[in-house]
Design a protein around this nucleic acid. Structure first.
Lengths: 114, 114
DNA sequence: GCTAAATGATACGGTAACGAAACGAAACCG
DNA sequence: CGGTTTCGTTTCGTTACCGTATCATTTAGC
């Protein structure tokens, strides 16, 4: 059941969701940050700094900084990999899961309005 | 013809579109900036600083700064309102229209994959 | 054990974002 | 005309982001 969207519909969907985020004073994440967050929550673990950097095609400091910021917001957390202590495992948090659940609702509601 | 999306589908759609933007080295806009851009392109003119600030529930400097940045990227442009020279009218550009057209394609393609 | 490689974090200099307050220019209004 | 309001911008100090280069820690290889 493929979903067919016109240009207008696709843009309107994005606008309404984005506007709702702004009006709700949700964290004003960049595209890179949102991509990192969604990847951690949607794809199977483990997630590492270098893995995310490779997937997004960005440098490692970009990931480190995003983890600092979103860690402060409690959307994600770090944990040392005890089997190889060079690695940092990026994990979900309750707050992050809640945020994305509400976010998905926003998308769904706007999609239904189309 | 309402479009029904599961939580998983909604998040996956957003992730794939965001990832494509990052991988293509498209401008790393914040949610606020994207909302401004989409509003200018989707809603009927004229668009003013105070109008956008009111719609988004943010202060005027937020709009001014976003226009500075996206103006430098040529996604938008300013024009004085000659009928009331206190006003600035925010207008579309060819580059901005092209960007959003490509963006809408990204959304459509990912939506079809669902 | 000792060098080399891998991993994530940090330092650096520069740019851009924030909110709050103040500003100049223009229009309104008595 | 003179004061007030409106509009967008600018300033201030602070915080966060960028890319590049370097760092400390840990593991791997010989």
């Amino acid at each position: 059941m493929a979903i067919v969207l016109s240009t207008e519909q696709a843009l309107k969907l994005w606008q309404e969701v984005s506007l709702a985020l702004v009006l709700d004073n949700k964290p004003d994440l960049t595209t890179r940050q949102m991509t990192i967050l969604l990847t951690v929550y949607l794809e199977p673990p483990p997630h590492t700094v270098r893995g995310l950097a490779a997937k997004l095609g960005v440098t490692k400091p970009v990931i480190t900084r995003a983890l600092d910021t979103m860690g402060r917001m409690e959307l994600l957390k770090r944990k040392r990999d005890e089997r190889d202590r060079r690695n940092v495992i990026i994990q979900r948090t309750v707050e992050g899961a809640l945020f994305l659940e509400q976010f998905a609702d926003l998308v769904s509601v706007q999609a239904e309005k189309i």
